[in-house]
Design a protein around this nucleic acid. Sequence first.
DNA 1: CTCCATAAGTGAATCGGTTAAGCAAAGCTA
DNA 2: TAGCTTTGCTTAACCGATTCACTTATGGAG
Lengths: 345, 345
Amino acid sequence: MTNARRKKVTLQQVAEAAGVSKATASLALSNNPRISEPTRQRVLEAVEALGYVYNQRAASLRTQRSYTIGLIIKDVSNPFNAELTSGAESQLADHDYSLVLATTDDDLDKQSRLVQTMLERDVDGLIFSPVAQTTTASMQDLMQYCPLVLLIPYYQKLAADCVGMDDENGTARALEHLIQLGHRRIAFVGGFAAQATRSRRLASYRDTLQRHNIGFDPALCIASPVTLRGGYEAVHQLLRLPRPPTAAYCYSDVNAFGVMLGLRAAGLEAGKDFAVIGFDDVPEASLWHPSLTTVSADPRGLGEKAAQLIHRRISMPDAPVRRIIMPSHLVIRDSTAPPLRERSN
Amino acid sequence: MTNARRKKVTLQQVAEAAGVSKATASLALSNNPRISEPTRQRVLEAVEALGYVYNQRAASLRTQRSYTIGLIIKDVSNPFNAELTSGAESQLADHDYSLVLATTDDDLDKQSRLVQTMLERDVDGLIFSPVAQTTTASMQDLMQYCPLVLLIPYYQKLAADCVGMDDENGTARALEHLIQLGHRRIAFVGGFAAQATRSRRLASYRDTLQRHNIGFDPALCIASPVTLRGGYEAVHQLLRLPRPPTAAYCYSDVNAFGVMLGLRAAGLEAGKDFAVIGFDDVPEASLWHPSLTTVSADPRGLGEKAAQLIHRRISMPDAPVRRIIMPSHLVIRDSTAPPLRERSN
DNA sequence: CTCCATAAGTGAATCGGTTAAGCAAAGCTA
DNA sequence: TAGCTTTGCTTAACCGATTCACTTATGGAG
């Protein structure tokens, strides 16, 4: 009784109960003006009486629209992606689209399988954050099967819609803030060389230093996993240098938190003995102690924008490619202070 | 060219290219032994040559299986739910199921719409964390349409599978820890009376106090939103009492973080002047300063378990109802210390 | 050489909707 | 009152797979 799956009621049965044809029932439910009001009412009553549930899947076979969008990202547990997902989901829900979520765990094979699954599910569009090793050719190919929005900015090689954040500008602002405070030895912490986003930020880091006549020191660039531990261990490495840095610009907030923990373990405090800047502005950034100066990237807005772009692409398949760079801005909090030497003299 | 949607290749076309019937092509692709190896190869070659993509949706119309599970929760941006989602998604992906995600924002109307959408999408099952005002009757009704797993423990009124965490035990452990440290005036902070989970924890809070001959003081129970601000404001209210508490047991980690901020604003420090315990053990709990003593609830495991339960229900519709309580345990960190008076004498 | 079992495929119904084309009755025009 | 339009509904094809029932060719047994 309780778990007995109720036998499904079909439109045919509704039609019979209302004394009309299946076609009429279908038209009535879609508010087609060719159906008279009394008839429509009878159909609606039959729907109610029988407990009919519309079968979107059956319909989509004919209409060729699934009202489903796929989202492929690395993981949801990371707060940045969670916000992004949330933004995309609510934007899509507002337009009666559903979100099918899949996570690659940064694994190329798994990604291939998931992309294939999405195509087989016949999603109307795909929002895709490809893992680093993904080839341009495979994405080019994918575009032929399904409207695509990439969660990567500046992918010039590919004529695909994409949306990403302004890594260059954000990085420049962060470094200029540190330079203005008097820092000259500034570390770059976190991420791996294979990550396109990191490459862009690193390039911008070098550019900005150069513009301010500060030499680039490779010893100050520490690659590490985008985790707390990554930041924690990086700071130990940095403090052992003959000329340690006085500040660190981190690939992500989570790295920055790790750096702050590492500093504390070394008897130093961020915002007093050492300046730390993150990237993302996850909710925890403002709550941390000391609160984290960081480049705010509005992940939720990113997800919403991606959803809007995929809608646009679906309704206008031949619209010109749009590459959106979401503005980022520096949020100055308590983790940044002038370098010690400056203040102590 | 670039965005031109490739015209879809159907099984019929594959069959023609391979010189066989549609039925044969279908059987060949499902590795049916009735199809000879040479024929199967020809079909596979045709698939490759034409770039055929299997249409799961069309198939499901016939097979009555969508290989899709719906997940309805309040929001994904909250780290607890993000972990839960992640656990469910990877568990489902391992069994070739896809996850359709929908968030209610704690809005009953939106929830109704989303449930309806899920039914129309014909999901094979639904993992559902209902908002507080959801009626038992509506869930009872829902069960007749679709296999259901509730993300709520102890829902005795309903013969539904469910999985939740052990609120009673976790609460008892937390309070016993505080009592053992010498605390006698212990506040209960966060959540609203309408929340079933909160009611359970509150009941367990009272029981445990009683078992240790400590009187219950309603002034020490502060209802508040499950946010930082909620905890922050609660602590102000508590400190103004004639006999303020020396410890707080919080509904969630995020409330506990708010309490710690509120204490700091009042010149007190958690773990030194006041003891604080949270619930959930979100990743930030161990990173906070001081690190948070909290009841660990393994949200990822919860999501995985829910996915397993829904699979079980799908394959065995008449299996007995299973209510799983995920064990919770107290993680003792730095935010709990003996009460000040005790230490200072 | 006949009979039957088995192997390998095929034809057609089916899932549950949508929609183009058609048709009968009523309304309107001249 | 004949002819045309409009209204309201129905018939049947269609979407892209699966699968049951059936056919035909092949091989082996008797």
